[in-house]
Simulated scan of single mutants.
Amino acid sequence: MHKHRLGRTAVEITRLGVGGGPMAGLFAPMADATAAETLAAAWDGGIRYFDTSPHYGLGHSERRIGEFLRQRPRDSYVLSTKVGRLLVPQEAKGRMDPVGFHVPADHYRVRDFTRSGVRRSVEDSLERMGVDRFDVLFLHDAEDCFDDALRDGYPALAELRDEGLVRAIGAGMYDTSMLTTLVKETDVDVIMQSGGCTLLNQGAFETFLPACAERGVSVIAASIFNSGLTATPRPGPDAHFDYQPASAEMIQRAHRIADVCEAHGVTLRQAAMAFPLRHPVVAGIVVGMSSPGEARQDVEDFGVDVPEQVWTDLRDQGLLAPSLL
Rank of each mutant, 00 (worst) to 15 (best):
A42Q: 11
A35N: 07
C212M: 02
A31T: 15
K93G: 03
Q297S: 11
R72Y: 00
H55C: 05
A321N: 12
A254H: 07
A42Y: 01
D162S: 13
M192N: 06
Y154F: 13
D259E: 15
T267Y: 07
A321W: 10
S125D: 07
M23P: 01
M96S: 14
G25E: 03
S223E: 14
F241A: 08
E300Q: 14
A248I: 04
R256L: 13
E308A: 14
A40N: 11
D132Y: 03
S291C: 02
G195I: 08
F113Q: 00
L325S: 10
G57S: 08
L139R: 00
S323C: 05
A222N: 08
L324H: 14
E185Q: 14
Q202R: 13
P54T: 09
R167E: 10
A283W: 12
L314N: 13
D97M: 12
G19L: 07
D259P: 11
D242K: 14
R128D: 06
A221W: 01
L87F: 08
T34C: 06
V131L: 02
E262H: 09
V136Y: 00
P233R: 04
S80F: 06
P89W: 00
V266S: 07
Y243H: 14
I191R: 01
A171V: 01
G170F: 02
P292C: 05
S223M: 15
E214K: 14
A272S: 15
P98I: 08
L137I: 00
G59S: 06
G66Q: 06
L160F: 03
